[in-house]
């Protein structure tokens, strides 16, 4: 299991190649890649702040839940921090399982948590200045689907 934060841009394809390598009993790997949106010019830069150590540990607790709940063989989460430009990948989640349903659902579950509860603070820099962003009602509703 790998949970990492990075300030550097990353290549989701390379991460997937690395994650799938050498697996002979894993029938399914599902991945999710989130990409920073330009919001039609409203967001020039997204700034993401984490609490190093704490943020990885909190994500790790949810990752452990996901492993248990979906019977995963492995999972990987890489999250950008710092300044992120539109079009750049911001988060990569990969789940390995015996069969596809568990892998798909684990990615969905992990993203619903990451979008609403993970210890990040997010600021949008745009032409009208900067503003801190909080999760939307939809983000909270998405997470509540999992009980």
């Amino acid at each position: 299991m790998s949970i990492r934060l990075t300030e550097a841009p990353f290549d989701p394809g390379a991460l997937l190649t690395e994650f799938t390598k050498g697996r002979t009993e894993t029938g399914a790997v599902a991945t999710f890649t989130g990409i920073a949106r330009a919001e039609a010019g409203a967001t020039a830069i997204l700034e993401l702040e984490a609490y190093p150590g704490f943020t990885e540990a909190e994500i790790g607790r949810i990752a452990d839940q996901a492993r248990e709940r979906f019977g995963l063989h492995d999972l990987a989460i890489l999250h950008r921090v710092g300044r992120i430009a539109p079009g750049e990948p911001i988060v990569f989640v990969a789940a390995a399982a015996g069969h596809r349903r568990a892998a798909f659902e684990a990615c969905d579950f992990l993203m619903d948590y990451l979008k609403s509860r993970a210890p990040f603070w997010k600021k949008e820099h745009g032409p009208d200045g900067e503003r801190w962003i909080e999760p939307t009602a939809q983000d909270h509703a998405d997470r509540e689907r999992w009980g």
Partner: peptide, 10 residues
Amino acid sequence: VAFLPPMSGG
């Protein structure tokens, strides 16, 4: 000691 305002998520 860290003061953590409501989290934005990623």
